[in-house]
């Protein structure tokens, strides 16, 4: 019973706190990016200002179906994170995550806008690029600790990174796609001057864009938590190590974002699949041989 309550509290904690942490993280991202470009940059709370403004704008909508789709995207994303923090099945988390991404694809193509549609198909290619690595990561966790349940993974005896270094590299590599960072941000980017206007969010305005942004905050926290999963053990002190690893990975993403140019989808697909195959694949073979 107490274990169940604890898991419930963690899940609720995620639902409530993730948007705040995610927003601050994005603010930090913009600040650090600005400093890297020798600018002052916006205040750290800028993302919250943006969302508040978007909530106050006139609501123009091209296709009413968009409301339902974007809302499903958000709810599924929250569910994904809540399931992870609730300690349930990791595989299920990633399936729900993929469903959420599909809803975003439908939101983008629903209006028939050429920019949205084009970005939608790029989004599908991106999903194709990162999905193998995501699934392999799940399998890696299973091989390393004999269970898909997050609850068992966080209660393991050793840091899983020692057994899964290859999976970790593959996962961090595809994180660039998931976080919409350059060089793999062909479907939508956080920076202006993209050739597809705003990519998959072209047709989103006012409240719907606010929902999209908040959902991205949830997603970022979820993705970074998976990074933490590689480091967390029974020992409570490992949480500090996990947090540090998360920050380092996030900083690395910002650095990559600011120092590379967008690549075409073919190159992205080749690069991600090669990295996935080489690092995660070899790691998988070794794990299976050692069993």
């Amino acid at each position: 019973m107490t274990e169940l309550t604890m898991r419930f509290i963690w899940a609720i904690g995620f639902v409530i706190l993730a948007p705040f942490l995610g927003g601050l993280l994005e603010g930090l991202d913009r600040k650090i990016s600005a400093r890297m470009q020798r600018r002052i940059g916006p205040p750290v709370v800028q993302p919250f200002y943006d969302v508040r403004k978007l909530m106050n704008k006139q609501y123009i909508i091209v296709n009413r179906g968009q409301n339902l789709l974007i809302l499903s995207y958000m709810i599924l994303m929250i569910l994904t994170g809540a399931m992870l923090f609730g300690g349930t099945d990791l595989l299920l988390c990633f399936f729900v995550l993929a469903t959420a991404a599909t809803f975003m694809y439908f939101t983008a193509v629903l209006t028939g806008s050429p920019y949205g549609t084009m970005a939608g198909s790029r989004e599908l290619v991106q999903m194709m690029a990162y999905e193998p690595a995501v699934l392999l990561t799940c399998i890696g966790f299973y091989l390393a600790c004999g269970s898909f349940r997050v609850f068992d993974i966080v209660n393991s005896d050793t840091m899983l990174i020692t057994k899964l270094p290859g999976f970790f590299v593959a996962y961090v590599f595809i994180l660039t796609i998931k976080m919409r960072k350059s060089p793999f941000d062909s479907s939508a980017s956080h920076h202006p001057h993209q050739e597809l206007v705003q990519g998959i969010k072209t047709e989103l305005g006012a409240k719907n864009l606010a929902i999209f942004i908040v959902t991205e905050w949830y997603e970022n926290i979820f993705l970074l938590s998976i990074v933490g999963l590689f480091f967390i053990t029974k020992n409570p002190l490992s949480i500090i190590v996990a947090l540090m690893a998360m920050f380092i990975v996030y900083f690395l993403e910002i650095l990559i974002d600011n120092s590379s140019a967008r690549v075409k989808w073919t190159l992205m697909l080749k690069m991600t699949w090669i990295v996935t195959l080489v690092f995660a694949g070899v790691n998988l073979l070794i794990l299976m041989l050692l069993k």
């Binding site: 978007l54 202006p192 705003q198 072209t202 047709e203 989103l204 864009l209």
Partner: peptide, 8 residues
């Protein structure tokens, strides 16, 4: 922010 999108 310089957005290219009139809707935003």
């Amino acid at each position: 922010e310089n957005t290219g999108d009139p809707m935003q």
